[in-house]
Nucleic acid binder design. Structure first.
Length: 303
DNA sequence: AAGGTGCGCAACCGCCGGAGG
DNA sequence: GCCTCCGGCGGTTGCGCACCT
């Protein structure tokens, strides 16, 4: 298949957006809503390609965007999330209300990456051959329900700047629909925590988490109740005391509902959401727990 | 004051996957 | 199943500004 060029048509504007163009785009979205950017560009009379319009809207024009002045707390969170997620800027941004993936990416590349030198060796990053690890995963074959998967490389691939978890043999106990996490966690070839790990002894003393892993992204959003770890006041719990996954902040910077947090599921109880800033002491405690959970305890520094 | 350099950030680009015809 | 459209994502580029010499 022939690849479509980024901007097909000749005569399109490129480069910085003018105030007039912004105004046109804002007005168009007000009337017609988001999406269908190709038509938006065309109908609004913008000489911009669809993706340029989308990018401009998502990163700069949509309501709720917070620009500049990244606080120490946010910086701390970015660093910790980056340790966990790697260059998954969209996921990281999803945890920072009002911040965009582009801004966080830029902030990391220009500010935080330089600070990495002060991190402990454990948090050093490495490049991993994506193909190699993808093949490695494929070798495990398709995951039927409750496949037992041996993950030799609990590392990540496909991106740079990923923290490397301690190398040790892990076993993933995977249930396609629901997974139980009992021991530790690993990152799959996609750089995602897509495998659920159980101690060899099946130690039931470990906390368990009820998760939906319809896809990797959903999975990682639900990393051992990541929301409750990062946003302690924001929890969803099943009657059996297992945590459920739900997304963080959506693109409109509103705490989003999980696809699983539907009204049809009356077992799910959403506890009142609290603002992160009011949770700082608890946040640090929970982050510490997270660090312990991921064998990154050594890296945890009390604020 | 002028030129050089480094940095920050907005925007571009390529790849990928999902949805729909 | 194939093709096209569209959106999401992460890496990269290049412009503009500030600072330095």
């Amino acid at each position: 298949m022939v690849r479509r060029p980024y901007c097909e048509k000749q005569g399109m504007n490129k480069g910085a957006w003018s105030a007039e163009e912004d105004k046109i785009l804002i007005n168009y979205v007000k009337i017609h809503g988001e999406g269908k950017w190709g038509r938006a560009a065309q109908n609004a009379g913008l000489k911009r390609c669809a993706r340029s319009c989308r990018l401009r809207w998502l990163n700069y024009l949509r309501p709720g965007i917070q620009r500049g002045n990244i606080t120490e707390d946010e910086e701390d969170l970015i660093i910790r999330l980056h340790r966990l997620l790697g260059n998954r800027w969209a996921l990281i941004a999803g945890r920072l209300p009002g911040r965009t993936d582009n801004e966080i990416k830029n902030y990391w590349n220009t500010i935080l990456a330089k600070k990495c030198g002060s991190f402990s060796p454990q948090s050093c990053v490495r490049k991993v051959n994506h193909e190699e690890e993808t093949a490695q995963c494929r070798n495990h074959g398709s995951m039927n329900n409750f496949d037992l998967v041996n993950v030799d490389q609990p590392s990540v691939a496909g991106m740079s700047g990923i923290p490397v978890l301690p190398q040790e043999e892990k076993h993933c106990f995977v249930d396609k629909g629901i997974g139980l996490m009992n021991n530790s966690c690993s990152i799959d070839n996609q750089g995602l925590f897509s495998s659920l790990l159980v101690g060899d002894d099946g130690d039931e003393n470990h906390p368990s988490f009820l998760m939906n892993i319809d896809n990797d992204n959903d999975f990682i959003m639900g990393l051992p109740d990541m929301d409750s770890l990062l946003f302690p006041g924001n929890r969803t719990m099943h009657e059996d005391n297992n945590y459920d996954i739900f997304g963080g902040y959506d693109k409109n910077n509103v705490m989003s509902s999980s696809p699983y947090d539907t009204t049809s599921d009356d077992q799910v109880v959403r506890v009142e959401t609290e603002v992160m800033h009011d949770q700082q002491p608890s946040l640090h405690v929970e982050l510490k727990k997270l660090a312990m959970f991921l064998d990154l305890e050594d890296e945890w520094k009390e604020p």
